[in-house]
Write a protein that binds this DNA or RNA. Structure first.
Length: 810
DNA sequence: TAATTCGCTAGACCGA
DNA sequence: TCGGTCTAGCGAA
């Protein structure tokens, strides 16, 4: 008897043994909890192209592979992209992947396709199923196994998941916690719709609310596991659970012979390698590591906090100053059993904010998962190229084209050797300017790709009319088909249209939950659009196309130069431009509407989806000179008519400069641009210099942050941050690559690196004032004062004003 | 084995 | 000790 069920598709996995058939398993959140379905009929397969498909099929059906296994079926198929394609079906994924080399060697086989698509992804693609969407399943129950007959998904609206966040505090006796020796002290749990609980053990917690006190660590872990099992969450949230909380908990469980059964059916977490790091995966239940989310958002410039630890991110996102309990205090509280409520509060807050972060950003990843056919687990750990690849795969399937395999390492390496030319950056007109209009192209590269039909299959097409046609890239010997729309332009056009549609819907919507979901959707579409060009020239991308990338940037340079040229012809002066933008000086006799009219005229001439936008009109702008002379590119400050200042590229927006200097530079820029008092700004500089000299500047203002991007022994040139870390390493401290190093230049040592020390091991007042004056303060402000006619000497001493007004002369 | 290229700057490094 | 070159990091787009 056929039965039906519906719910949210949460997870997909498969089992594959050497001897048995691979089996797809789906986990669906239904009204009766998470249910498990299998599809015994679905088999893994790949495609090959052959000179003579029949011959290859005959051969395959008659001969086993060297490992003794046999294919279970072949079929000729018609594909729009290639002729003579054959589908080859395998019993399981192991046999498929093991026999790819043998298959390639068979006489008459030209190429393999889709042989590296993971089995669950294959299933989702073929069934047009998206995780996190609503699915309808038709199934029969067989020996307790729910076997799928049919399954289909529908786009879903806002999705409310039952989440449970947890966070561990562990003992760190004078070193980093080691799960093989150091116990877990507390486990904080926060979950949707219930009050947070902290699990702990021992004395000193009497009378504290929502604290579950056990007799020992083992019992604490058991109580935690039972709590999770009873709550039965759809997702478990951590902050860095991939590399800390889950592995730690696992090791402690092993010590006590406990099963960390927090997945579906009390299954335990397993390690899954994702590119270069290990993630902790649960079956059915989605492990969301909020730290991975934050890293993704930092790459997309949605989160701009330089440090990504929970405290910094919470401050950045929620504006809340969370207390950070130092490890020494944790140890002390634990050992003395005094002030235990501080430890509890700290753990509770960490856990609650971890959940809050997930709630804040999950809608984005839910939409990403839906659009790119990934589970929440994968979507939150995904990369740009995988996301773009995913929507291209869907398009390839829809148009019956074969999906190319990923390039081999050698191919990728070779592609790496020939970088392509990027955008055009115009040298700015140095100095202080009035009335500046900023114009830029909306999604420049995607809109060029769409408008000029740039795609691997349309490149240098053989149609006679295209060969000598009008769609040739400027200064390049490449052209693109004008008759058939390419795969990449089709995808991007759809994404662009969809985004416009979603934004429209959003405007009309009243329900805040709906608006939130729609906003997440349009944001995901924007992210996909923005990363599409990068993917195209990423050496490991399936649809990598060097000529396509080269053509896109060639058109980009062409269009942006054209705008500057026409602007000049229309009475504007081009001050600067970078890749997709032009900054124009607007003469006094022109108004805002003249700029708008100019933009309109340009847009009337632009084809397809290309569009120039009028981004803003500014009262004043400043371009300074480079140290080596000439005007500096990618470095400017603008002042709006509303008094708001935008600083780009200057030291004050860089994390590797001391806060003292960054704040000072902003003040100086303000003074210059707001037509304030440069003399006041000068006083400010002198005051700062004096404070430095008198030793009055606090550590906090002097810290310089730099990322440690490799292990210390792998550096050729030992910069200050590496030197500081090496000193700390010799004292037994450990550092991982990617961590932010906070250091201060002290007085003891010869070279700058010799004098660099980790901020945490420097006493207040121990800093090299000469270094901060001559290597930080002055370089950051002198170029700005230079534009006002001041010289470097004027900054330090005397009240020289003679040259103050001299800039009016030139 | 995390999308790209363009550009600036600091400070080490190295040979004269 | 100097000045040029190289390594490294970060930001703009």
């Amino acid at each position: 008897m056929n039965q039906k069920a519906s719910g949210i598709l949460l997870d997909i996995s498969y089992s594959s043994g050497e001897q048995e058939e691979s089996l797809i398993t789906l986990f669906v959140k239904t009204s009766e909890g998470i249910q498990r379905f299998v599809d015994p009929a679905f088999r893994p397969y790949l495609y090959l192209t052959a000179k003579n498909p029949r011959k290859v099929m005959e051969y395959l059906n008659a001969h086993p592979f060297p490992d003794g296994s046999r294919i279970i079926g072949t079929e000729t198929v018609t594909k729009s992209s290639h002729e003579n394609a054959v589908k080859v079906v395998f019993r399981n994924t192991v046999e498929l992947s093991n026999n790819r080399p043998a298959l390639k060697k068979i006489d008459g086989v030209l190429r393999l396709f889709e042989s590296d698509i993971l089995y669950p992804k294959r299933f989702l693609l073929d069934h047009r199923l998206s995780p996190l969407n609503e699915v309808e399943v038709e199934f029969t129950e067989n020996n307790g196994r729910k076997e799928i007959h049919s399954i289909a998904s529908e786009p879903g609206g806002p999705l409310q998941l039952n989440l449970l966040a947890f966070d561990l505090e562990t003992l760190a006796p004078g070193r980093f916690s080691d799960p093989s020796q150091d116990p877990i002290l507390t486990i904080g749990v926060a979950a949707t719709g219930v009050e947070s609980v902290v699990f702990t053990y021992g004395k000193g917690f009497e009378g504290q609310k929502n604290v579950k006190v056990c007799s020992d660590e083992k019992e604490t872990i058991e109580a935690f596991i039972s709590f999770v099992q009873e709550f039965a969450p759809d997702g478990i949230v951590t902050y860095n659970g991939d590399s800390f909380d889950f592995p730690y908990l696992k090791t402690r469980c092993e010590k006590y012979g406990l099963k960390l059964g927090v997945g579906h059916g009390k299954s335990e977490p397993s390690q899954k390698k994702i590119s270069i790091f290990n993630a902790q995966k649960l079956r059915g239940v989605q492990h969301v590591d909020a730290f991975q989310i934050v890293k993704f958002l930092a790459r997309m410039a949605v989160i701009t906090s330089p440090k990504l630890d929970l405290e910094s991110v919470v401050k950045h996102v929620f504006g809340f100053e969370k207390e950070k309990l130092p490890v020494e205090s944790i140890n002390e509280i634990w050992n003395s059993r005094k002030n235990t409520e501080r430890l509890i509060q700290y753990n509770r807050e960490d856990t609650e904010f971890t959940l809050k972060l997930a709630n804040q950003f999950l809608p984005l990843f839910i939409e990403l998962g839906r659009i790119t056919q990934q589970t929440l687990f994968d979507a939150t750990r995904s990369t740009s190229s995988v996301n773009v690849e995913s929507i291209m795969m869907q398009e390839a399937l829809a148009r019956g084209a074969l999906i190319p395999t990923k390039p081999s390492s050698e191919e990728a390496e070779e592609r790496n050797q020939s970088p392509i030319q990027g955008g055009y950056v115009r040298e700015p007109v140095q100095g202080l300017h009035e009335r500046i209009a900023v114009l830029d192209f909306r999604s420049l590269y995607p809109s060029i790709i769409i408008s000029h039909n740039i795609s691997p299959e349309t490149l240098n097409c053989p149609h006679a009319s295209c060969v000598k046609g009008s769609n040739q890239a400027p200064e390049e010997n490449t052209w693109f088909c004008e008759q058939e729309k390419g795969l990449i332009p089709s995808v991007l056009a759809r994404v662009l249209e969809k985004r416009i549609e979603v934004k429209k819907k959003m405007k009309a919507e009243k329900d805040p939950l709906q608006i939130n979901a729609l906003n997440a959707q349009q944001h995901v579409l924007k992210i996909l659009l923005n990363s599409s060009y990068g993917a195209l020239i990423y050496p490991r991308f399936r649809w990598y196309c060097r000529e396509c990338g080269q053509a896109a940037t060639a058109w980009g340079r062409h269009y942006v130069k054209k705008v500057m040229e026409e602007a000049e012809q229309n009475g504007f002066r081009t001050l600067y431009g970078d890749t997709d933008s032009a900054m124009l000086q607007v003469p006094a006799e022109k108004e805002k509407k003249d700029i708008e009219a100019f933009v309109e005229r340009i847009n009337a001439k632009l084809t397809g989806s290309m569009e120039l936008e009028f981004k803003g009109f500014y009262r004043r702008g400043l371009f300074v000179s480079k140290k080596s002379g000439g005007a500096a590119k990618k470095k400017y400050a603008l002042m709006g008519f509303d008094g708001k200042m935008e600083v780009v590229g200057f030291e004050s927006v860089r994390r590797d400069w001391a806060i003292l200097v960054k704040e000072l530079q902003r003040k100086v820029l303000e003074a210059v641009l707001a037509e304030g008092d440069p003399q006041k700004a000068l006083e400010e500089v002198r005051r700062t210099v004096k404070r430095l000299q008198e030793g009055k500047v606090s550590k906090k203002e002097l810290v310089i942050m730099t990322q440690l991007r490799r292990q210390t022994q792998n550096y050729q040139a030992i910069g200050p941050h590496v030197a500081a870390v090496r000193k700390a390493e010799s004292e037994g401290k450990k550092f991982s690559t990617g961590s932010l190093i906070e250091f201060i230049i002290t007085r003891s040592g010869k070279s700058i690196s010799d004098r660099a020390r980790l901020s945490e091991s420097v006493k207040e007042g121990d800093y090299d004032s000469d270094y901060y004056i001559h290597h930080q303060v002055l370089p950051a402000v002198e170029k700005i004062f230079e534009e006002l006619g001041y010289r470097k000497e004027d900054l330090l001493h005397g009240g020289k004003q003679s040259s103050l007004f001299s800039f009016e002369g030139h």
